[in-house]
């Protein structure tokens, strides 16, 4: 069982890294999106491996099923040519690498410092406990996140309306 889990881990890791690489480097936006979807699939697999099927399924439902479709819709509305000529000159690549590497390093350090390495797979948390936790213990953080999301959504609608008036 343990070797199987190891192979699954390696497979998901390869999918995430490979998909992410395609998403970042491919000049064709839709192909980049396919890479992103693959990476999201890999992350969902990781959740399943960590015995958190609810989070894994939500990852699929929200990111693969909804967010990627919205990104696709945005690409379609802006109509880039299918050949992939929208790539910008890569003069700012060092800054981009730095911007990507900084949060990765920070999160990595926090993860290694805060969590001890464990071998045992954690027990599956039921949706009931998950719901109790979200609305009870972590209620304030949960509500704050929803307020942030609401503000972002209202802001996006507002910006959309402004654009339309100008045009």
């Amino acid at each position: 069982m343990e070797t199987l889990a190891f192979f699954a881990y390696a497979l998901y890791l390869a999918i995430i890294v490979g998909g992410g690489f395609v998403a970042v480097t491919n000049p064709d936006l839709v192909r980049a999106l396919v890479g992103l979807v693959a990476a999201m699939f890999g992350v969902a697999g990781m959740y399943f491996l960590m015995n958190a099927p609810f989070v894994g399924l939500m990852q699929l439902l929200i990111y693969v099923g909804a967010i990627s479709v919205l990104i696709f819709f945005a690409i379609m509305l802006t109509r880039p040519p299918a050949g992939g000529e929208e790539q910008t000159p890569s003069t700012r690549r060092p800054m981009a690498v730095l911007a990507a590497a900084a949060p990765v390093a920070l999160l990595g350090v926090i993860c290694f410092k805060a969590f001890k390495q464990t071998v045992a797979v954690p027990d599956e948390t039921g949706i009931k406990e998950l719901g109790m936790g979200l609305l009870g213990t972590y209620g304030l953080a949960f509500e704050l996140i929803s307020v942030v999301l609401l503000v972002a959504m209202v802001g996006a609608v507002l910006l959309g309306f402004k654009r339309r008036e100008e045009a």
Binding site: L57, L60, L61, V64, G65, A66, V69, M76, A82
Partner: peptide, 24 residues
Amino acid sequence: LNLGMVLILAFAGLGVLSICLAGW
């Protein structure tokens, strides 16, 4: 599966994506 319904909804969402990719 305890989350059977969620699993169906999650994977059913992939259908739209495939139609998008086909059309594009």
